[in-house]
Amino acid sequence: MSADTWRIGKHEMSSRFFLGTGLFPSPLVQQEAISASGAEVLTFAIRRVNLDAVEDDSILQHIEPGAFIFLPNTSGARTADEAVRIARLARASGLSDWVKVEISASERTLLPDPIETLRATEILVREGFTVLPYISDDPIICRKLEEAGAAAIMPGGAPIGTGLGILNPYNIGLIVEEAGVPVIIDAGLGTASDASLAMELGASAVLMNTPVAKAKDPVGMAKAMRMAIEAGRLAYVSGRMPKKRYASASSGMASLIVK
């Protein structure tokens, strides 16, 4: 197979694994997990500096400068205006003009608010951001986000941090089928088979944080996810056999020695 690369904006990538940077047990484990994942894109959140502990390590001190594309998110935002404000702050860092629009409408489920997400995407696209909205697995809202200029669409497999896997493979398949921009499965995955299924359904990439960071061995899980993503992608590209209702023998019945 020739180099199976893909792109968002001007960035051509070979890894199909976006890795989050929250919840890791230590900076060292995080660094090793990043390395094992092969990820080229890392996600971050934007929060206030703790002015009473300014000497505390910035997370960026542990990340090799220039080696990754940074994808800051707008987590914590409840409206489009809040998300736009966070996105502008993130871009002012000079580190990235990519933004993951994440606007939660429910504290319990953290499910995205589709109306506000669409509004924020429209505004940020106009302002020249590379916008990757996190959204529900609804094919229609995904289409509308693409029409609004999203550089990729990122439907969730299940609510953030649940590890429930892909709850609606039919919808994800439909989203992939209809999308003209990369589809990245974001949120809700739990283990390697979930990542593999996402890729077998035709996703361009997978974004994960909790299933790696909260695994017993995050470095081992980062590697497992990387392999699952590669396996799922190769299976998708190679084209699986059709499912059949009844058995069909591998050797046929001709020249059988028993009658």
Partner: peptide, 10 residues
């Protein structure tokens, strides 16, 4: 004045 920075997140 708001002073913010990148923190771990997904």
């Amino acid at each position: 004045i708001e002073l913010v920075h990148f923190v771990g997140g997904g």
